[in-house]
């Protein structure tokens, strides 16, 4: 049974790639040129991410090495235990709606330190996949048309984020 599940999930990415390429060929798209165009965007994503990654890693690295994070995690553990949330993901939960690249950097840091396939790793990945940079998104779209009154939309969006994060922890717990 486990072998079958593994086989299917191994099949997932290659078959997505093949399906998309197949469609491209069928409709006579210049697949390789198009691929190169997209890959160039990828370089831009990583280049834009790099300074933030470096900055956040520097701060988080210093925090961790100083022993301060361990101290803080110990302090909030009773609360997070009560909510059944691993305390390691709290910094991520706080940063996620504020900054995309910073929260990605914190997520990577968690994945490296706690393992990609551990429960904490899975929750971290699920949170990153299922939530957005709420503040940034609202700011971009409202400022694009010069709107000031948002009718409480931030509350709805943040509530959705919290719901998504709680759902991530619960679903990963059940599935693993």
């Amino acid at each position: 049974m486990e072998n079958i599940i593994n086989y299917i999930s191994n099949l997932a990415i290659p078959s997505i790639i093949v399906t998309i390429i197949f469609y491209g060929l069928k409709e006579k798209t210049k697949v390789f040129d198009t691929f190169l165009d997209g890959a160039k965007d990828g370089i831009e994503i990583v280049l834009k991410m790099f300074p933030t990654l470096l900055g956040i890693f520097l701060a988080v690295g210093a925090l961790r090495a100083s022993g301060l994070i361990d101290g803080l995690v110990k302090l909030i553990t009773p609360l997070t235990n009560f909510l059944e949330i691993p305390s390691a993901i709290i910094p991520l939960a706080v940063l996620r709606p504020i900054s995309g690249s910073a929260s990605m950097a914190v997520a990577v840091d968690i994945l490296q330190n706690y393992g990609v396939d551990t429960l904490i790793g899975l929750i971290t990945s699920t949170i990153m996949g299922s939530t957005e940079t709420t503040f940034y998104t609202i700011a971009i779209y409202t400022s694009a048309v010069g709107i000031k009154k948002t009718r409480g939309i931030l509350i709805a969006a943040l509530a959705a984020d919290v719901a998504g994060m709680l759902a991530s922890t619960i679903v990963c717990r059940i599935l693993s």
Partner: peptide
């Protein structure tokens, strides 16, 4: 960042093809 460069470029490229179909 160097490892991300490979995987993220792969997906951006593949999704760019999807966009054209």
């Amino acid at each position: 960042s160097l490892t991300f460069l490979g995987t993220i470029c792969l997906w951006s490229g593949i999704m760019e093809i999807a966009k054209k179909t």
